[in-house]
Design a protein around this nucleic acid. Sequence first.
RNA 1: GCCCGGGUGGCGAAACCGGUAGACGCAGGGGACUUAAAAUCCCCAAUCCGAAAGGGUGUGCGGGUUCGAGUCCCGCCCCGGGCACCA
Length: 882
Amino acid sequence: MRIAPRPSRSSTAMDPHYQPKSLEPAVQKQWADTKAFLAPDDSPKPKYYNVGMLPYPSGKLHMGHVRNYSINDALAHFLRMKGYNVLQPMGWDAFGLPAENAAMANGVPPAKWTWDNIAYMKKQLQGLGFSIDWTREVATCSPDYYRWNQWFFLRMREKGIAYRKTGTVNWDPVDQTVLANEQVIDGKGWRTGATVEKREIPMWYLRISQYADELVDALDGLGWPEQVKQMQRNWIGRSYGVEFTLPYAPETAARMADGKAGLKVYTTRADTIMGITFAAVAAEHPLAAEAAKSNPALVAFIDECKKGGVMEADLATMEKKGMPTGLFVLHPFTKEKVEAWVGNYVLMGYGEGAVMAVPGHDERDFAFAKKYGLAIKPVIDVDGQAYSTDAWQPWYEEAGVCVNSGKYDGLAQQAAIDAVAADLSAMGLGDKRKQFRLRDWGISRQRYWGTPIPMILCPACGDVPVPDDQLPVVLPEDLVPDGSGSPLAKSRAFYECQCPTCGGDARRETDTMDTFVDSSWYFFRYTCPDAAAMVDARADYWMPMDQYIGGIEHAILHLLYARFWTKAMRDMGLVKVDEPFRNLLTQGMVLNHIFSRRTAKGGIEYFAPEEIEPAVDAEGKVIGALLKSDGSEVEYNGIGTMSKSKRNGVDPQDLIDRYGADTARLYVMFASPPTDTILWSDSSVEGSFRFLKRLWKLVHDHLAAGGPVAARASGDLPKPLKDLRFKLHRTIDKVGDDYGRRLQFNTAIAAVMELLNAMTDAHDASPAGRAVAQEVLEGAVLLLSPVVPHVCTALWAELRPGSALIAQPWPEVDPSALVQDTVVLVLQVNGKLRGQLEVAAAATKDEIEKLALASEAAVKHMEGRPAKKVVVVPGRLVNIVA
RNA sequence: GCCCGGGUGGCGAAACCGGUAGACGCAGGGGACUUAAAAUCCCCAAUCCGAAAGGGUGUGCGGGUUCGAGUCCCGCCCCGGGCACCA
């Protein structure tokens, strides 16, 4: 069947011009009519489950999406050609903050905004012609989906995986609302400009720490980039250290009414224990509160510590400040008094809110001690180097041998740690302990547009779960947030309810779930989108996912939460897999310039690059910027990820409208390897379009000169045709390797370009020449079809009338075409390129060495010196050292 | 600050396991075709010296290992991603 529209005046020829505007919709219609990409839930073929991270429906696709799903789609097509039953679904990460922000900006309820965006972006994805099974579409904001978030939350609560405790949030004192980290800029609220404060509120947590060991250990077996596995290992941060108590000094113990014997601390460097010179506690620590009772300056300092947000990056870079409390703990061994300080860098939520300080061997403690004139006591000797308290040296932190440490003197690190732990244990003060950096996952959000947490607070019965038969707790869709607190907490219709246990008046939980909950298991739901339960047996067929593709920015949080959730589902008997994602490809970010300025209120507003006239210095670096509309100055913030909030996304629609989907896809795939970060530029899109036009013309001219050639060339071919077939089959081999193993598409496309260049150079109108040309063109079309499926579908229909591209297998390499008589080696003298050497493919090292030494170039550049050494790398080069 | 990446011509990049640095393409220059333009096709093109042949230099910076380093090691600089409430 022909896809290309045929000009009416010609009866035999294909359209001489490449016309994507009419061609692409026709091909897409054919795919839709034949339900070409619906994946059956059983098949004699091996299954291949291929997913791109689901998009947030922000309004329009951006280039990052095009890149992401073009990679997925190329793999989907390739694996289909390789004989797999491929499932490629799509869905929407439809809850989240931007919908509430949009609602505040223009008064549209988040639900309408979200569903409109989904409809538009779905049309864009369909216009790009991705081979998606749309019958499995999932939107996380639909009650059919999020009811299972609620259902599973209740199961986790029953097993003690979900629990309640307090956590620290950013509080905007003007809007009286909790802010996301993104909404805190330089410690101030983005809309009010008010200084943000830390506030402790009760929240629901998921005990991911219970799975910490398995989450680290199972990384080894995953086909993930080493870099991502390393990030997760570091994030989970399993360490083997010592936990012990620094007992309160007698007068301090008398004042402390916390029922504890002292400060509990954890260290991986117990070998430095004799170097303790002070301790530090968080501002919220009971010890700080006790000390503050009689110390107004300390009260002021504690208040100051509460200023600012909760972001780790801010806490780690801010100036370390502290104040002595006048309260003391005892060194566990020497019984010396050690003063407790309040430190602004110690957080109550982490560990016990207290740390021991060894300024001699910890850089942060060292800086703190220098600042406040505290003692620095070196207790580790590293290779006899001289310690000086004048300035920090990196080796102070290295492992060495104990000195100034009494009975531990002379012990190496591990022996010292073992001895210290044994002694602490004997004294009943502590012991060795495995610890993780990973903290439990707080899922409560004081927001509207998310999954309601299915709990009811009854004055008589306490926390009561919503009974399963009353799920889902439906989120009302008609509310509009105003920026001051959660609309749910203000909606009586939502929160007024009866206690399921006693029937009395009760209040529904108004917090919603973190949207990472939604994205932690959607890939299970794709396999059985209409299941009456959370999942059914179809998940066992499709999972684990064979290939997951998404941005590197998800390397830790999303991927870790999804792994945890999967294990929790497994332990609940819902699924069989231990790990959800067998192979992972993390694509690089698509970056663009960012422009912003402060608003009158002290908040921040962003401008799209097209609204800006940048000022550029002599080297082309952006140094300033003006707003086009009124010429006012805006700030240049450098380059960063395309995002809705920073308004620097690029909508691919212009590109698609102008050149077609295939050109847009070819462009993003050809621009760089998928894992590279790219700075957006459309300056070479024209070249991708030109290549498709050229491909079209090559096929057209070939067919116009005598129609398709049915049979392969046979018998002895002249050298140029033999060489061309060699090139074709080497290209088939390379492209298959690039798609299947390397997941690198730019080099695959370049290889096909080279092949077509070679075909043009070797143009031969003889029957044998036309037969080889037919073979090359068919090969090129098959090789490119995963990337540009529309044009290849049309070209295939011309090259092989009556046959459909979609039914074609991946081309086979003809081994006989790859046989070569001679190879060309590079000739080096003293490592410098001095010539080339053509030798028989079967030549031995000795023969090659003789030929090399006898060659004119070698003789000339050896200048009469004898060869000291000859290095022969078979198939590559000869290097003569003279 | 901590963890993980990256830096190669005017630009995007290639070089996969230590073996010809710059494939392929963009932009550019020259030419063909055309009344002209567009489109298309052909040629040139890292850089410096040279008419050419040829030679020198060159993969962010400084050292090192090696017959040979873009690739490995040590020390820096700059850029990007993540840092637990953006998704």
